[in-house]
Design a protein around this nucleic acid. Structure first.
Length: 414
RNA sequence: CGGGACGUGGUGUAACGGCUAACAUACCUGUUUUGGGUACAGGUGACUCCGGGUUCGAAUCCCGGCGUCCCGACCA
């Protein structure tokens, strides 16, 4: 991709109405644009990152036996009345069409996925089952805030699991803890993301959240210094010690919830009467769990946690491009050909490269490269050629190094 | 939804109730420059959020609305 052609430009200053670091940097770097409070457009760069995050999550969900589907956002009122949430859910968006028919804009999909499962789940042989989707959700937040961290429309992965009994649910639930842990490790925030005990509501003792420690967080958690497990503020009141290892050495931190897992049991299968026949031919209720990850929030969290004073720092797996190639040839036509050649070879090899071909000064290009935060920067210039080839610098590191062109291309061989 | 702050070219800011709403940046033309946001010249771009009111005169004062952000309550 030629940077001169890229839709979206960097800017020196963030809009005055953005305070959150994630929104300031993502807007300045041209990743997102705000349409209204809590509603953002993903520009090409931002959409690339989103797709990277999505790909990682999809890979992990598929590996965990999930089958991907796509449910609608427009939900008939009836389904929401069946569960009682048409009236009880304060942040439900309700829309009325010109015929007077009412719908909800989906904030979560139990009301759709349970009736769906009812179409195909009849027997214990049909269980267990795990369905998931990655899709836009709508919630009328009383107050959208913190940039991309709390929006009114946001992209979420929601997986629903169906089981024949609580033991099977418990086993799957445990498995998902590990799956989630791996997801956040791949996002580069594993070290500061803690499995957190949270309130389970009326039907389970606990649910679990995955909380990433950052000053931008809006939750307070208490992290066990021994085992790294955390307890949510709401739970810590009657649970003073770590439920995992028993230690009472807890440190208080601000954190943002990037994922949660929840034992639903029969909360939603019951109102829709979702049952299956066991080996004796008797009807049994289907036991459910649900598992969510907010993708946009995750993207914002990565920015919050990893960015430095110069700009965004993407981990390799979510970087919008594999390499940011900087052309510093200036008026040197021969050198320009050299850089062009590097760009074409990389592209031909299938490497995702952003090529800064713009007619700008070096300082400006470096400043932009730091702001964009692509994980690897490569410079071809008189200076680099004189020193042996290509200067490679990783965004997360301070110093670059010169490698020969051959070595440089080898970096991309998988 | 309660409390607070704010709304001026794309962006960031300035302007006592009084000249043609100023500056920077971005953008366009040209020259210049090329390893950490280059310099110069010229140029485009604003019904000062919307609607009322006060006044000889409103970006500025008053009322109402809308919007944005922050704090709180609520929440992936």
């Amino acid at each position: 991709m030629l940077q001169s052609q890229l839709f979206g430009k960097t800017r020196k200053e963030a809009p005055s109405d953005e305070v959150a670091k994630n929104a300031k940097l993502l807007i300045r770097a041209g990743y997102i644009d705000k349409l209204q409070a809590g509603v953002y457009t993903y520009l090409p760069l931002g959409f690339r990152v989103l797709k990277k995050i999505e790909a990682i999550i999809r890979e992990e969900m598929d590996a965990a036996g999930g089958q991907e589907i796509l449910m609608p956002s427009l939900h008939p009122k009836d389904n929401w009345e069946t569960t009682g949430r048409w009236d009880s859910m304060d942040d439900l968006y309700k829309v009325q069409d010109s015929s007077g028919r009412e719908n909800a804009l989906g904030p979560t999909h139990e009301e759709v996925v349970v009736p769906l499962a009812k179409q195909f789940v009849f027997s214990y042989k049909d269980l267990p089952l795990a369905l998931y989707q990655i899709q836009n959700k709508f919630r009328m937040e009383l107050r959208a805030k913190s940039g991309i961290l709390r929006g009114r429309e946001f992209i979420m992965k929601d997986l629903y699991s169906f089981h024949r009994d609580e033991a099977d649910l418990a086993a799957y639930y445990e498995k998902m803890k590990g799956v989630y842990k791996r997801v956040f490790e791949r996002m580069g925030i594993g070290a500061v993301t803690h499995l957190t005990f949270a309130s389970g509501g009326s039907f389970a003792k606990y649910s679990h959240e995955f909380q990433t420690v950052t000053p931008a967080g809006e939750d307070t958690i208490h992290v066990c210094t021994k085992c790294g497990i955390a307890i949510n503020q709401e739970v810590v009141a009657d649970q003073k010690a770590c439920p995992e290892c028993g230690s009472d050495e807890l440190t208080q931190e601000k954190a943002i919830e990037v994922g949660n897992i929840f034992e639903l049991k029969t909360k939603y299968s019951a109102p829709f009467n979702l049952t299956y026949k066991d080996e004796e031919g008797k009807d049994q209720p289907v036991i459910m769990g649900c598992y969510g990850i907010g993708l946009g929030r995750l993207m914002g969290t990565i920015v919050e946690v990893l960015a430095d004073e110069k700009g965004i720092v993407w981990p390799e797996e979510v970087s919008p491009f594999q390499v940011h190639l900087i052309d510093l040839s200036g008026k040197n036509e021969e050198l320009k050909k050299e850089v062009q050649d590097v760009y074409e070879k990389l592209s031909a090899a299938g490497v995702a490269v952003l090529f800064d071909d713009r007619d700008l000064r070096a300082g400006e290009k470096f400043a932009d490269a730091d702001l964009l935060g692509i994980s690897m920067r490569a410079v071809v210039s008189e200076k680099s050629l004189a020193a042996g080839g290509v200067e490679v610098k990783y965004r997360a590191e301070q110093e670059g190094k010169i490698v020969s062109k051959e070595e440089f291309f080898k970096l991309f061989v998988r």
